[in-house]
Simulated assay, not measured.
Amino acid sequence: MFEEIYSPVQKITLPPFNNLFVKRDDLIDPYISGNKWRKLKYILARAKAENKTHLVTFGGAYSNHLVATAAAAARSGLKSTAFVRGEEVKNEMLLLCSLFGMQLIFTNRESYRDKHKLFELHFATNDEAYFIDEGGASPEATIGCAQIISELIENYDHIFCAAGTGTTAAGLLKGIQQQGLNTKLHIIPVLKGGSFIKDEIAKYTPLSDHLALHLDYHFGGYAKTTPQLIDFIKTFTAQTGLLLDPVYTAKMCFAIADLQKKGFIGEDDKILAIHTGGLIGLFGMEDKF
């Protein structure tokens, strides 16, 4: 299922930028979208090597990771189960999970904090079950995300990416280091208090001067928005024809525009934004628009 694939790089016309490009990982697959495809590629390979046939993972009620895991399992002939954080709800994302055959176990927030304990409680005697951490966080995931860098045929002054768990960021930094590039990697945490991302990255690859963390673009926290961010999405999409999701990519693109205004990046600098997909999350936020 996870055959080799290379997402295109698209130049975006957006004043005042002269060299703004987007790595269109959102085009890889509508459900196993963007960095989710990158992360799951080697996770599923390891599960298969260990003869595991039941993927067990974790996420919130609007998690793109859950949808991606459910879709990947269905296409691979595997079972899937997700521990969903919080009270039982119904929404578009969980509907897709269910249609792909995923069993949903709604879990209170206190119990959810110890994911390994939850896994052991339900699957300790199931030799076919394979633990996948929230967001796919794992060494295997960083290998897949590092390939984003190895696919690039041009060099860039700056690469931008939004971050939740830090796994994709770690893979990008690893890729930059492996390729010996001088590129600056700008990570936009989408959670309030996102400084922990640096520690998460350090679990997978050494920190270096390539990395810049920008903590002021969370717009209130994970899955939080403001009228300013929603207005930015509307204007950006109308100008470029490129859809953004409010949770990740919109915050990243807002940061790029704001950092240029503040003089941190130049109008002629060559910039690559990683579009990590997740666009189906738009359908859970109709009321914001």
Rank of each mutant, 00 (worst) to 15 (best):
H275P: 11
A61N: 15
A170P: 06
A202P: 04
D133N: 03
F289I: 14
T249W: 01
F264L: 14
G175I: 05
F119S: 02
T165C: 10
Y156I: 06
E3S: 12
E140A: 07
E140D: 13
L152M: 10
L172M: 05
G86C: 06
Q260M: 13
A71Q: 07
K48C: 05
L282K: 08
I280P: 14
S80H: 11
I149G: 00
E154I: 00
S80L: 10
P8R: 01
L172D: 09
G136C: 01
F2A: 02
L213P: 10
H275R: 05
F21V: 01
G284A: 06
E110P: 08
Q103F: 07
L181Y: 13
G166V: 00
A70R: 06
I159P: 04
P206D: 02
K203G: 00
K39T: 07
L207W: 12
K192D: 14
V84A: 04
I280F: 15
G281R: 08
L152V: 02
I176M: 10
G86T: 09
Y248L: 02
E88G: 12
A250N: 01
Q239K: 15
I230S: 12
D29G: 02
I143L: 14
D199Y: 13
D29I: 01
T142N: 00
L55D: 12
G241E: 10
K41M: 01
A141H: 07
K79R: 15
K39L: 10
K184Q: 15
L259Q: 15
G101N: 04
K270Q: 11
A70P: 10
V84S: 07
V190E: 06
L272K: 08
G193N: 03
K261V: 08
L173R: 06
